[in-house]
């Protein structure tokens, strides 16, 4: 979801998760394709304040699979949490949060909240993570 003023083309969606709240969000028009490409090489996990609601809420807007991806229940220190989850696997975090996410073992892709995933070059990111030393890429679903 992007923050105004947008710096890229967007599509608008009214999202919710099992009712109770609703919101019109704008996502980059390119986001579904970028996520689809990343999902071919990465196991994607949510690290969002939206927690388990994120996948349900954004499924349609982003063209996500029916079975939700996992989520990590953290909102700060996300890079640390992803590193712990990834174990010996290489990893990347796409981050538009308020705080910095320093990382020693993976790649943090800092994106402008006005552009979001549109700023992610999926091919380059896959290539970069494949190129991380001494680690073996585990295909999605093959976590040891």
């Amino acid at each position: 979801m992007l923050t105004e003023p947008f710096a890229t083309a967007v599509t608008e969606h009214r999202v919710s998760a099992w009712g109770r709240w609703g919101r019109i969000v704008s996502v980059p028009a390119t986001a579904p394709a970028i996520i689809g490409r990343l999902a071919r090489d990465f196991e994607i996990v949510w690290v969002s304040a939206w927690g388990h609601n994120a996948h349900t809420a954004l499924r349609e807007a982003l063209g996500l699979p029916d079975v939700p991806w996992r989520f990590l229940p953290v909102q700060f220190g996300k890079a640390r949490a992803v590193a712990a989850y990834a174990g010996d696997r290489p990893w990347a975090l796409v981050h538009d949060g308020l705080d910095d996410e320093p990382s020693e073992s993976g790649t943090v892709v800092r994106v402008d909240p006005r552009r979001g995933l549109d700023q992610v070059d999926a091919e380059k990111l896959v290539e970069a993570v494949h190129g991380l030393p001494y680690r073996e890429i585990h295909r999605r679903g093959s976590r040891p």
Binding site: A17, R20, W21, W50, G51, N53, A57, Q75, F76, G77
Partner: peptide, 9 residues
């Protein structure tokens, strides 16, 4: 604030 566990509500 960094101890918060915010959710969608």
């Amino acid at each position: 604030h960094t101890d918060d566990h915010l959710t969608t509500t």
